[in-house]
């Protein structure tokens, strides 16, 4: 079989599109303070932020998996009134400016928030200005990617596979574990990856809801933003770290999960 070629116009536009994506990276690399890089990157601010970023993005991904997968399954399979409203609600964080999402979280889960206040009174827990706040903010903004991935994958899954599992003695949990989830595996993995990437780069909701304190809530994007005010070299260095980590994760995992399909 011969491979179909794309029309020339598509190729040209694609090249322009590729250039469009490369420009910011070129800008970053051109200004990078290469010789000072080791010193800049080993500073305490950067190391603290890196640690927090990894913990909080993985935490947000885990929280998204815990809540987002069931939500995607519900949206795909359960029939209930107001499902489209619910779907709209879930997708809202994709549209809202993250700063607004963060402010809304503050209104809801803050110390004086609608839900945050009773929580605070009962448990003494204050979500803002803590790592939990960072995780919650990132999860709110990132989870929709997982929910959509799961929903559309489950929707495209022939329900007869689950039916077959049932006739073979599998209860609902085993069917979910041994058939549904493995069969949507690639979409699930893609969704988790996007969720992680979005959480890793999350800025607006985090700074609004969780604040910014080195070693406690200051993730890499926050550190970049603060450094940008005064110390551009550090800002660029941190950005390079983010680019390196996300690119290698995205490339490595993408190849592993999607090549076989």
């Amino acid at each position: 079989m011969s491979r179909r070629r794309n029309p020339l116009g598509v190729v040209i536009l694609a090249v322009i599109g590729l250039f469009f994506f490369t420009i910011p990276l070129i800008g970053l690399l051109a200004r990078a303070p290469w010789s000072d890089l080791p010193d800049l990157l080993s500073s305490e601010i950067v190391l603290d932020a890196l640690r927090l970023s990894l913990i909080s993005s993985l935490g947000a991904t885990a929280l998204s998996a815990l809540l987002g997968i069931p939500l995607g399954l519900m949206l795909a399979r359960a029939e209930f009134p107001g499902r489209s409203v619910l779907r709209g609600l879930v997708l809202l964080p994709l549209v809202l400016p993250p700063v607004v999402a963060g402010t809304a979280l503050l209104f809801a889960l803050g110390r004086r928030g609608v839900i945050g206040e009773p929580i605070n009174e009962v448990t003494g827990l204050v979500l803002p200005f803590s790592i939990w706040g960072v995780i919650i903010a990132a999860a709110l903004v990132a989870m929709p990617f997982l929910v959509i991935s799961v929903e559309s994958a489950v929707r495209n899954l022939d329900p007869r596979f689950e039916g077959a599992a049932a006739t073979l003695g599998a209860g609902k949990w085993r069917t979910l574990r041994a058939v549904t989830l493995p069969m949507i595996g690639p979409s699930l993995a893609a969704g988790l990856l996007l969720t992680w990437a979005r959480a890793f780069g999350e800025f607006g909701a985090t700074i609004t809801f969780a604040g910014n304190l080195q070693g406690r809530t200051q993730t890499l994007p926050l550190a970049v933003f603060v450094a940008l005010e005064q110390d551009r070299d550090t800002a660029i260095a941190i950005s390079l770290v983010m680019v390196a980590i996300s690119l290698s994760v995205l490339i490595l995992l993408r190849d592993r999960w999607w090549r076989a399909r």
Binding site: F161, T167, A178
Partner: peptide, 27 residues
């Protein structure tokens, strides 16, 4: 269904694509 003990060969078979023939039968 999971408690009925009915052996079914489905139309288009509906074999689980993500596991081996052996694991399909062992399922």
């Amino acid at each position: 269904p999971e408690q009925r003990q009915i052996g079914v060969v489905f139309q288009d078979l509906v074999l689980f694509p993500h596991i081996s023939a052996l694991d399909n039968v062992a399922f």
